[in-house]
Design a binder for these strands. Structure first.
Lengths: 221, 221
DNA sequence: GATAAATAACTAACCAGTCAGTAATATAGA
DNA sequence: TCTATATTACTGACTGGTTAGTTATTTATC
């Protein structure tokens, strides 16, 4: 009689690591395919579990998505809030700091795919849109407006409508991410991300600068 | 005996107007729901026909979408190309002209929903993405780069990488459209489109201006 | 052996695209 | 001008494939 081969178990119990493995897999598939087109079976396969297991840890596709956002974006926002609260120095430096931090923690990571995803799916999944808006966007925009307010108050930036300025500041950065995760694949040559982000922040600061105080003025002195 | 009631026919033959009625309905539904989530039955209902009729005039959902783009966006691009070819004057004025024309023909019309749609669906529908990229985006970007090139050559704009500058120029405008067609619905107060577009173009021109030639310099003189 | 963790087969609902049939219109013959 | 016949625009039921979420069952671990 042949001795029993040392069989691997077909699966093992790993209750405490499953959720993060599943959210990591979910982030990848969500970013690749969008929310609606993501098959939970694919997420499960990429996490090395079966579809049923996903439902053991998350009530629904929507809850799974919220978990991804909570894990990746909320901490980054909290971090940025600390930066703003603790910042002493020029408003330009604060803006540079915020953009660089955002690029490091979000833009250049797999979480950088989420803005495009939210833009794409908000109309069809209003509950998710609401969640994302309340938990992420409102807070991010508040930070930008605070930095802009300080700069205008100190005379560093020319004074203009805060909401308009805030929109103009985040546009080139979010648009870049959105582009990278959508139509960039059709391009033959694409921009270098690091260089672009650097150029963009300087361009924005030129646009904001009060007459006689911007980078131009410095160069002229 | 009651005289025969003047019965309306259940439908009438209207071969020549069907296609444009169907594309008009399709544009509405595509913009509301996106490409994937659009049900051809809904498009048909909105156009006042049955689903079978849509397939009499268009081979597939994809072809229907392409027809919408051909009808609305390609003529606007052609118009812009004429403007650039015929323009005599400063590069700033050319850019203002292009943005205003785009806003009038696309941004402020139902076609303004298409950029967000393409961004959303390009990953999952590469053939449509390719079509849109070749027929619309390449041509639009070429126009912007041409205007920027002229401005840099004449010394009106500071000289910088053309592709970077081009991306920075279109970002605030496309981002605005994208926002209006996605997460703007979560906002309590939203920007006035006309005012925003005006502010944005001036901000962009400040960012581009060569030292001593921008709106700031004029104000200082 | 008890039970928590994981699987896999299943259900119910959805929709692009097809096609057999129907009803509106055109036209030929009286 | 009336009617019979031919044409074709249009309809709507149906098919085949897909997937979120459920449940019955199996397997690992204590």
């Amino acid at each position: 009689m042949v001795s029993a081969p040392a069989r691997q178990p077909r699966w093992t119990r790993r209750k405490n690591v499953r959720p993060s493995e599943i959210t990591a897999a979910a982030l990848e598939v969500f970013v690749e395919k969008g929310f609606a087109a993501t098959r939970l079976e694919d997420v499960a396969a990429r996490a090395g579990v079966s579809k049923g297991t996903v439902y053991l840890y998350f009530d629904s596709k929507e809850e799974l998505f919220k978990a991804v956002v909570r894990e990746g974006l909320i901490p980054a926002i909290a971090e940025a809030e600390k930066r703003v609260a603790g910042h002493r120095g020029s408003a330009s430096d604060l803006l540079r700091d915020l953009v660089r931090g955002w690029w490091q923690l979000v833009g250049s990571t797999p979480y950088g795919g989420l803005p495009k995803l939210m833009i794409s799916e908000s109309r069809n999944f209003p509950e998710i849109a609401r969640f994302y808006y309340e938990e992420v966007i409102i807070r991010a925009h508040r930070l930008l407006r605070e930095a802009l307010r300080r700069g205008m108050e100190s005379g560093e930036f020319r004074s203009m409508d805060l909401n308009t300025a805030q929109f103009l500041v985040f546009s080139p950065f979010i648009m870049f991410l959105v582009w990278q995760h959508s139509l960039a694949c059709c391009e033959s040559e694409s921009l270098d991300p690091g260089a672009y982000v650097g150029e963009a922040i300087e361009m924005v600061l030129r646009g904001l600068a009060a007459p006689g105080t911007g980078p131009q003025a410095k160069a002229r002195r």
